Simulated scan of single mutants.
Amino acid sequence: MLGFFKRDKNKIAKDGGDHSVDSMELLGEKTETTGKEVKTSLNIPPNANIGQEERYYYQFLNNELPLLKENQISLSGIEVHTEEDGRVLVKAFIRNSIAKGVHFQEPIPLSLLGPNEERLARQIFDLTILGELPPESSTPWLFVFEKKNVFEKEIPQTDWKLAFEVTKSKGPHALDLEESWEKSLADKDKEKLEQLVKTVQPPKPGEVNFMGLQSRLDDEGALHVTLLIRNGSEKNVKLEQLPLNVEDASGEIVAKGVFKLEALEIKANTSKPWTFIFPKELVLKEDADLSKWKAYVPQG
């Protein structure tokens, strides 16, 4: 995604600063380190619609970039432009100093920072569309901040930088068990849940969603539904009241109700299992086919 706004052809320099993070911190890429510094090679995306002159321009800028430490992902600002509609367009190099190709596995929050580290804009970008970043490479890319995500009317043309927003304390998405579950679950069942949380795709940043684990009708006609409540946010989430619908294999709603949870808390970046029991009077279909089912929060 290049060539979105024209550059001043009399100017061959980049205006933005640099921001680098360890690949393990950003992508979970654990690699060996030898202590060497890396000079990244220019990589133009295959679908970039640019001419030879533009290629020379990016090659010149890339040649002037500082060396990176091994195993880093870096953003190096090139230029910034504010559109009449309020959007802010930022060109930057995405640099990979790892000795192998890497992929972004999920959307990443980025901040545009001013001369005093003040946040000028913030937005989550889907960088999975980049595909593979080649080993030890610099890829020019255009980032479009929508007007609603821009916090200042005047964006400085120099002394700014594009930065990854990484919560350093954030580790892999993990299982969090309520104390009652911790005491009642067998070790083998805990291990199964932990393995599930490790292997499934974690929720997107800021997203809270539900994954069905188990459903059954008891002898009294009540429907028991166990869900994994998944919190992809950087903050703890408290659920006080939760409306739920359950559909069976036919797609019909077989139960619906509203549950008061007394501030059930799901910690940041964790998944917590919880069982919801629909009493018989809330079960709408006694012969439900639960070979396939889903539970969800109704809209509206």
Rank of each mutant, 00 (worst) to 15 (best):
F4H: 06
K11H: 12
D15K: 07
S20P: 03
D22I: 09
E25H: 09
E25V: 06
L26F: 11
L26V: 07
L26I: 07
L27G: 06
L27D: 08
G28T: 12
E29T: 03
T31H: 15
T34D: 12
G35S: 13
G35T: 13
G35F: 15
K39D: 02
T40P: 06
T40A: 12
T40E: 14
S41I: 08
N43W: 14
P46Y: 09
E53R: 15
E53S: 15
E54M: 11
Y56F: 12
Q59N: 14
F60M: 04
N62F: 01
P66R: 13
P66V: 12
E70I: 03
L75D: 04
S76V: 04
E79N: 10
V80K: 09
H81Y: 13
T82N: 03
E84V: 03
V88E: 09
F93N: 06
I94Q: 00
I94M: 03
I98E: 01
I98M: 13
A99Q: 08
A99G: 08
K100N: 10
F104C: 12
Q105P: 00
S111M: 09
S111W: 01
S111Q: 12
L112V: 09
E118C: 00
R122Y: 14
Q123I: 02
I124D: 05
I124R: 02
T128S: 14
L130T: 05
L130D: 03
G131A: 06
E132D: 08
L133W: 07
P134C: 04
T139L: 15
W141E: 02
L142Y: 05
F145Q: 01
F145P: 00
F145E: 02
K147M: 06
N149R: 04
V150I: 09
E152F: 09
W160I: 02
W160Y: 14
L162I: 07
V166D: 02
A174F: 04
E178S: 09
E178T: 10
S180A: 14
E182C: 03
K183W: 10
S184Y: 09
A186S: 05
K190Q: 02
E191W: 06
E194F: 10
T199F: 14
P202R: 07
P202N: 10
K204N: 08
G206V: 12
M211Y: 12
G212D: 04
Q214S: 15
Q214L: 13
R216A: 14
D219Y: 07
L223M: 10
V225P: 05
L227Q: 02
L227I: 11
I229V: 13
R230L: 01
R230S: 09
R230A: 05
K235L: 12
N236G: 14
N236S: 15
Q241T: 15
Q241C: 08
P243M: 10
L244R: 06
D248C: 14
A249G: 03
S250H: 05
G251V: 11
E252M: 13
K256E: 12
K256V: 06
K256M: 04
G257I: 05
F259G: 07
E262A: 13
A263P: 03
E265N: 13
I266T: 08
A268S: 14
N269C: 05
T270L: 05
P273Y: 04
F276C: 05
I277Q: 01
I277R: 11
F278P: 00
K280H: 07
E281M: 07
L282M: 15
L290W: 07
S291Q: 10
K292L: 13
G300T: 02
